[in-house]
């Protein structure tokens, strides 16, 4: 039995659309395999020694709250990229994903600096891109279908064409509604617009994150879980998007 710990960044400020579902999912799937997992909340007053954690999660927030977080992370965040390069599993949703890029350009033209970890930018747009979404993701060399719900005004545009999207859009909008890409995957980091929440309905992605966490600890995660309920929920959304109901 191993004891894992996950850092939840700015849970008070960045917690929209059932984000905690993603954490519950990771925690439970470790427990069902006989391990323990604690979740630590890190806020504006805490330092960000992320190297101590097995995984980092950050969710979406409203514009005002996102502004506060931008400023705070810009001051503290310089070493986070080193951890990402070293393989720290990280999941960034909506606003947290946008923050990883060069900048966010608001509707009034105001430019907010991002962490500049990756060479993409996000431009506010209208209308908001809202709805159920189905993508085909490329995870660990495997093609997996992933479902969720997206709700974002920002259009994210990759400036570096070597960047890898998490997957390509089958139904829905994705990064910008145009180029067919959705999200970003780099080593063990995933950025995405999918909430819904994202992980409970996509156990393959949850297990990708969990095995990355385990591998860094030298722990084997070989227990297969019965995912029939998760698969049912997944397929229900998928079938609906593809036009066959169940």
């Amino acid at each position: 039995m191993a004891q894992f710990s996950i850092a939840h960044l700015y849970p008070d400020l960045m917690n929209l659309y059932g984000d905690r579902g993603n954490l519950i999912c990771l925690q439970k799937r470790l427990q069902w395999r006989g391990h323990q997992c604690s979740i630590e909340n890190l806020g504006l007053s805490d330092d960000m020694e992320l190297g101590r954690y097995d995984m980092v999660f950050m969710g979406g927030g409203s514009d005002r709250e996102q502004g506060l977080v931008y400023e705070d992370l810009l001051r503290k965040g310089s070493r986070i990229m080193e951890q990402i390069e070293a393989g720290l599993p990280m999941l960034c949703i909506c606003g947290a994903y946008q923050l990883l890029g060069q900048s966010y350009i608001a509707a009034d033209g105001q430019v907010m600096d991002g962490l500049r970890f990756f060479n993409f930018r996000t431009v506010a747009g209208s209308p908001r891109l809202i709805g159920n979404i189905l993508i085909e993701a490329n995870i660990d060399g495997q093609k997996v279908s992933v479902v969720g719900f997206e709700n974002h005004g920002g259009r994210t545009i990759f400036l570096d064409h070597k960047l890898q999207p998490l997957g390509h859009v089958i139904k829905g909008f994705g990064n910008n509604g145009k180029d067919g890409g959705e999200g970003l995957i780099y080593k063990n980091l995933i950025g995405t617009y999918l909430h819904g929440p994202f992980l409970p309905k996509n156990p393959a992605v949850a297990d990708f994150i969990l095995s990355a966490m385990a591998k860094r600890r030298g722990v084997e995660l070989d227990t297969l879980l019965d995912d029939s309920i998760e698969k049912y929920a997944h397929d229900q959304v998928k079938d609906r998007l593809l036009g066959s109901s169940r």
Binding site: K201, I229, A233, Q236, V237
Partner: peptide, 16 residues
């Protein structure tokens, strides 16, 4: 969305 609520209940700890 019967599937989604079922997943939710599963992760609250109900035996499947």
């Amino acid at each position: 969305r019967s599937g989604d609520i079922a997943v939710r209940f599963k992760y609250t700890g109900f035996d499947t």
